[in-house]
Amino acid sequence: MTLPGIPLLLQSIVSGILIGGVYGLVAIGLTLIFGVMKIINFAHGSFMMLGMFTTYWLYVLLGIDPYLSLLLTIPLLFLFGLLVERFLIDKILDAPEHNQLLLTLGISLVIENLALFLWSPNFRTIDVSYANKATTLGPVMISFPKVVAFVFAIFLTTVLYYFLKNTDLGKAIRAASEEKEGALTVGINLKKIYYIAFGIGTACVGAAGTVAAPFFYVSPQVGGVFVITAFVVVVLGGMGNFLGALIGGLIIGLAESVGAAIIPGQLKQFIIYFIFILVLLFKPAGLFGKANA
């Protein structure tokens, strides 16, 4: 272990926060689905990969700017998630947990292998002009696409938060996650809430894929990189806790980035799992979860 100099430390703090916003958006999709449906969605990473590839192909084939493609990836992934819930997840909602786990894992295997078959396992990058653009702020270099990704992640999170807080549909989604029987008694159609929530969760991770695409490689198995981290974030923030997922994302982003500066080489994942184990041991309901949740 070496102590990094101040410039390197500042650099890793900034990078960590920026990527943390994206982790947050991935985790919010996961935690929303879990909160409402009590389903742990192992297909989340493959949905992110679909978001990235949608952006990639829109850029390569039609020349659509990755950020502009958000206008397409969000509704497309929403619709995709909605259909997956409606026709697959819906069938196993009352099934034992291991069956649900197998189904979502199976969906992810199908999607990833289909992607491998169609698009090969090659790593691709989107060669937009601003991919490597950066500005320096004192000793710190700030990558343009990472800043944009962070801003979009925070913006989309805020929009979703506002939606859940202030609209009737948003309140119905929260009601369904808090008290199912209560939701039924006021006339909420839980089946509809489930596919909408699943669609929103999928759109979140798809959007995260889109904004990450300009600075990350695109490949059929890229989702796993983010989603394992997102699981840690969700547990850290408290399963089903919306703001916990965002703050957890920032914490994990920071820990990973600063950890990489302190601990050499390939060990940066070590920090994340170390935090994960500490949380499970000492605060299993998460930093912001209720003790009995």
């Binding site: 929260r174 009601a175 808090e178 008290e179 029987e181 209560g182 939701a183 008694t185």
Partner: peptide, 8 residues
């Protein structure tokens, strides 16, 4: 048991 939405 009322089944109100407790955090709302």
């Amino acid at each position: 048991g009322r089944k109100i939405f407790p955090t709302m």
